[in-house]
């Protein structure tokens, strides 16, 4: 559906996007992850035909964004970063304006707008000027605007920024609903957002793609970083050594210890499950095991590993 090849974008001296390549299939919800300034917004601006790439190409349904700009733009709904809106316009007037520009036939405009108002829950504020709305409502206006023409592709630049936790859950739910029939690319630097909504993630850092795959694959690829945290009631001496002696334990750290309560963190070698061993050891030594948790590599760990430094 969308194919990005060797895309680069330079602003004067700085290189915002450096030779990235990826494909997006129909019906995918792609999370575009990266630290601030990684090139997410720049890539989206090129996808939406706002500006041309310095090198490389982007095609949507086989049409180049430069050569068939108008045709590509018709397929896309776009929520830019910062969600720019005309603050002096009434919500309904604004949606009608966008519907007209999007080329929705006059007899279908009202039905489409009505549908969007239902989906985004804008009914209560339809007659208000956008400038008077809360940030959450403005974001919904932005989303309604992006979807009013029922586009095949939705490009959302940080769709939940500035929303309160309830609104975030709502918007994510909305995006998931939409993702059933549409292709969605959303950018964010909030990892839980990707985990909650996307079925695939691309991590970019300093203008380069550093990871691309389903969430499961990404986590699996960086496996081996599994950790076990345990808390035991045990005498002071010998704990550390005995834990280190367990097969599969790579590194054991004592996190806290107070009186006879101790917390340890064990990094586990790939392919081992240490929990049973820890339990047996505790039984043998007469320790009282109070807590035992396994943490597999989170997306957060993957992200930090790929984008730090």
């Amino acid at each position: 559906m969308i194919s990005v090849r060797n895309l680069s974008k330079h602003y004067d001296e700085t290189i915002a996007v450096n030779d990235i390549t990826f494909e997006v299939k129909q019906g995918e919800i792609l999370g575009f992850l990266g630290p601030n300034g990684a090139g997410k917004t720049t890539t989206m601006k090129i996808l939406t035909c706002f500006m041309p790439p310095t090198a490389g190409s982007v095609t949507v349904d086989g049409m180049d964004v430069m050569d068939h700009s108008l045709a590509v733009r018709r397929k896309i709904g776009y929520l830019p970063e910062q969600n720019p809106l005309y603050h002096d316009m009434i919500v309904l007037d604004y949606l009608r304006f966008v519907a007209e520009l999007r080329g929705i036939p006059a007899d279908q405009q009202n039905a489409r707008i009505k549908r969007m108002v239902e989906v985004t829950g804008l009914k209560a504020v339809l007659g208000k000027p956008i400038g008077e709305l809360s940030k959450g409502y403005r974001q919904r206006v932005g989303l309604a605007q992006a979807m009013v023409h029922n586009p095949e592709i939705l490009i959302l630049d940080e769709p939940t920024s500035g929303l309160d936790p309830n609104q975030i859950v709502e918007i994510r739910h909305l995006i998931q609903e939409l993702g059933k029939e549409k292709t969605v690319i959303l950018s964010t630097h909030i990892l839980s957002e990707v985990q909650a909504t996307c079925n695939r993630a691309i991590i970019i850092n300093q203008g380069k793609v550093v990871a691309d795959g389903s969430l499961h694959d990404l986590q699996a690829a960086f496996h081996g970083q599994e950790k076990i945290t345990l808390e035991v009631k045990a005498p002071k001496n010998g704990c550390l050594e005995k834990l280190r002696a367990l097969p599969g334990a790579q590194q054991v750290r004592e996190l806290t210890s107070s009186n006879d309560l101790r917390r340890f963190q064990i990094e586990v070698e790939k392919g081992h499950d240490l929990r049973e061993g820890v339990f047996d050891l505790s039984v043998r030594e007469g320790w009282k095991l109070l807590e035992l948790t396994r943490q597999s590599t989170s997306l957060e760990d993957v992200f930090r590993q790929l984008t730090k430094g």
Partner: peptide
């Protein structure tokens, strides 16, 4: 200034 130009020029308008 407000960034609405980005929306306007990414609509299917010349």
């Amino acid at each position: 200034k407000t960034g609405t130009i980005e929306l306007l020029v990414t609509m299917p308008t010349r």
